[in-house]
Every structure is written in C-alpha cells, then in structure tokens.
C-alpha cells in the first residue's frame, strides 16, 4: 500500500470558551484509507473531525490552537479559502440532510454554485456521483422527484453523492449511520469500503463494531486525549493502552 500522508494534525488543542476539548492531539491520516475516530460521548471525536474542514469556526467561542496540514498546507492559515477547503474535504453528517429540492438538484448543487451551467456537464457529474454513491440504479428514473421522498438510507447516499459531486479528496463522515436501520447501515459501510479506493475517508463513530468493520486505522479518544492510534486489526486485538482495553471490553463508555 502506498503510504502517502494527506492530513496531519499537529499539537491540536481546542476550547469551547474556557473548557478544553482536545488536548495536544497529533495524528496523521494516510491517503486512500479509512480511519475511524472512536470513543465515548464527549471524548472530542466530533470536535476533532470538525477541525479538519473548519466546521467548528461557526461555533461562537470556539478556539483552535495547533496545526492541521492538508497536503502540507496549513488549513488555519489566514489566506485559506474555506469554500475551496470544503470542496477538497467534504462532509457527511449524522442525520441525512438533503436540501428540499429534487434528487438531481441536490447532487448538482455544489457544481452550480461554482457558476457552471453546462447542462450536459452537470448531467454527467450527477450520474457519476450517484453511481459512486451506489444510488444510481435506485433513482435514475425519478431524478426530479424530491430528495426528501427517499428512505433514510437513500437520503444519506444522496448526501454522499452531493459531497462527491464537487470532486473532493477527503470525505469526513460524522456518525453517518446513527439514524439508519441495520440494512441501510450495511449499505453505507459497504460504500465506505468501496469509496476508499479513490478517496481518503475519516469516520467518527461511537459504534465500536462499525469502526472494527470499516476502518484500516483506528484512533481511540478519551476525555480529549488521543489515547491510542494504529492499524484497526491491532487496536481491536492487542490494544497497547489499558484505557483502550477497558473501553473495548465494556468497562466504561
């Protein structure tokens, strides 16, 4: 496997007002792999993933110290265009949140706001993105129906297609299956495994079994500390830290 590091987090501290959330986290993400961020509620995993495309900037009194390097570029530098950044590093959220528009328009949205109007070009992007999100066959005959008429699992795949349409390199998933039933969950997990051939995937999950199934690398966070990071097969069989062992055997969390 080619070992290209695409994102580096260096000495990251983050605060909501006076409360420190992340404590001196340093972590590298390898390109075209799936990394799971796991830990009990309040461990800082969602805060951490949101630092990677500066989603936390929208939260009042949020403060970040340290560095996040994406392909060597500091994401928190003053001249970084956040819109460009989020095009490169897309995100899929916990609850499916399609726009109240048609299936087609949801996927086309990111392309349109770039000022592109060529219909054929947009048609191509919509089809390709829906195919990559494993949804095309289910919706190709009803592209102009409202996205909100789809099932929860399909809506989540619409959101994935919408993220893919702007050609990102990294996709962040924040608890992508917590609002889905087991069958829709299995589909999303399969999709994540498929997507890693072309994209770098980072998944936040409190579901340890899901982290075990989908990821190549796992980071375990606890009370804002990065307790342990390593290949998933190792973390789930011979964790090195006592806290990881206790979390995985259900002693807390």
């Amino acid at each position: 496997m080619e070992q290209e590091i695409i994102i580096q987090i260096k000495d990251a501290d983050s605060f909501y007002g006076p409360k420190q959330i992340l404590k001196n986290v340093t972590l590298d993400f390898q390109a075209k792999t799936v990394t799971a961020l796991m830990g009990p509620s309040g461990c800082g995993k969602s805060t951490l993933i949101r630092c990677l495309n500066r989603m936390n900037d929208l939260i009042p009194r949020f403060r970040f110290e340290g560095k996040v390097l994406y392909k060597g570029i500091d994401l928190y530098a003053k001249d970084v265009d956040i819109t460009d950044l989020r095009r490169e590093i897309g995100m899929v959220f916990q609850k499916p949140n399609p726009f109240p528009k048609s299936i087609y328009e949801n996927v086309a949205y990111g392309v349109r706001i770039q000022g592109i109007t060529n219909r054929e070009f947009i048609d191509g992007i919509v089809e390709e993105s829906l195919k990559r999100a494993a949804l095309w066959e289910e919706v190709k005959d009803r592209l102009h129906e409202p996205a909100l008429s789809l099932s929860g699992g399909q809506q989540q795949r619409i959101c994935i297609a919408r993220a893919l349409a702007v050609k990102p390199h990294v996709i962040l998933f924040d608890e992508p299956c917590s609002a889905l039933d087991p069958i829709a969950t299995a589909k999303i997990e399969e999709l994540i495994t498929e997507l890693k051939k072309n994209y770098t995937i980072i998944v936040v999950t409190h579901n340890t079994a899901q982290a075990a199934r989908v990821s190549d690398f796992t980071a375990f966070l606890y009370l804002g500390d990065l307790v342990e990071f390593g290949p998933t097969a190792k973390i789930f069989t011979v964790p090195q830290d006592k806290r990881t062992e206790e979390y995985l055997t259900g002693k807390f969390g």
Binding site: A209, A233, K234, F236, T237
Partner: peptide
C-alpha cells in the same frame, strides 16, 4: 493466527 483473531474481533 493473527488474521483469525483479527477477523473475529473486527467482523464478528
């Protein structure tokens, strides 16, 4: 040995 153990842990 390692693969079997990891497979049980990861994929149930």
């Amino acid at each position: 040995d390692e693969t079997c153990t990891a497979l049980i842990a990861q994929f149930e």
